[in-house]
């Protein structure tokens, strides 16, 4: 019963976080918003001292798209991480570790310099290429060990980061600044346009993953165990890998590289709910979104300047990864 309560708490967690995030921040205070809300709901005559256009602009044009985008990006990365962990039977993988992020980053940077190339498409294609490379490099004798998958992910990440550097080197200074800002993982230039460009890929990917969430339980049993119950593990892996890559690359194309969120969130969710993907997948989405929103709200309201949110998550996620690796039960055996 306790678990049930926890599950639903995770599902609805984004609601209060969205609310808090909307009212926090410079330029418009929570007090002003509250007064505005009271005024509007009681149909009081407008107070001349309050600039309602500013309020509306800050709330509607600045904060709301950013809040929604953050929610979607965090949710997509965590849901993709959860799915990748189940399908590779490897609790240490994530979009970042498998090279998916680096591939998507390279694709998106390429699209910045080549005008006719759609950013979302380029990010998706190179992200898929990167994961496929990591997987096939790690595969020996039809098995993929936990550690070799991580190592090949490191190599693939390195290759795509190097390619990204070449793109940066060849591009003009104005575009370079865009690319550098964006690779750090940033949500501060969120807009309705950006939200729109990412929403389709994320929505299709996450809904697809949601439908296939129980299949992930079957896949997590292993290849022979999957084949024995009548499913082809190779096909099933693709059916999960494609939507996971779609969701994560769409998020990365719009928000840049937000490191290790996709690793840490599914772990925290599993610690709370157990490993059943029927529950961890939706909870990873909502908790990942809420978590990134909390981090982003802090990063824009704590200091005078904005720390790129990707830097934040990597600083938090790095120690977490080391903790998982050191914990005896994960990793080194085969």
């Amino acid at each position: 019963m306790n678990k049930l309560l926890l599950r639903y708490t995770l599902y609805i967690l984004p609601l209060p976080v969205v609310f808090i995030s909307l009212v926090l921040g410079p330029a418009v205070s929570a007090r002003q918003l509250f007064d505005w809300f009271v005024e509007w709901s009681l149909r009081r005559p407008p107070d001349e001292a309050v600039n309602r256009d500013l309020l509306r602009a800050v709330l509607w044009d600045v904060r709301l798209p950013r809040v929604l985008l953050t929610l979607l990006v965090g949710g997509a990365l965590a849901a993709a991480g959860n799915s990748l962990q189940a399908l590779f039977r490897n609790p240490l993988v994530s979009p970042y570790i498998l090279g998916l992020s680096a591939g998507a980053a390279f694709g998106a940077a390429l699209a910045v310099t080549i005008p006719w190339l759609p950013v979302q498409l380029a990010a998706f294609v190179f992200a898929l290429l990167a994961v496929a490379l990591s997987y096939y490099l790690a595969r020996t004798n039809k098995t993929v060990s936990t550690v070799s998958l991580i190592l090949s992910g490191v190599i693939v990440s390195g290759i795509f980061t190097a390619l990204l550097t070449i793109v940066q080197f060849l591009t003009d200074p104005f575009k370079l600044q865009t690319i550098v800002q964006w690779t750090m993982g940033n949500l501060h230039n969120a807009s309705w346009d950006k939200l729109q460009s990412a929403a389709l890929g994320i929505a299709v990917g996450v809904i697809w993953l949601f439908l296939f969430r129980w299949r992930m339980n079957v896949l997590a049993m292993g290849d022979d165990e999957t084949r024995a119950v009548g499913l082809n593990p190779e096909h099933q892996r693709l059916l999960v890998l494609i939507p996971a890559t779609l969701a994560a690359s769409a998020a990365i194309a719009v928000a840049g590289v937000i490191g290790l969120l996709g690793l840490a969130i599914p772990h925290m969710v599993r610690m709370m709910l157990g490993p059943d993907n029927r529950y961890t997948l939706p909870a990873s989405f909502t908790f990942g979104g809420a978590f990134l929103l909390i981090v982003d709200t802090c990063s824009r309201s704590v200091a005078q300047f904005e720390i790129p949110v990707g830097v934040f998550t990597t600083l938090l996620g790095g120690p977490f990864f080391i903790f998982l690796l050191k914990k005896a039960r994960i990793g080194w055996e085969a």
Binding site: P91, A220, M221, E225, G274, P275
Partner: peptide, 9 residues
């Protein structure tokens, strides 16, 4: 022999 990775119930 089944090698489990996740602690499924």
């Amino acid at each position: 022999q089944h090698r489990a990775v996740f602690p499924f119930a």
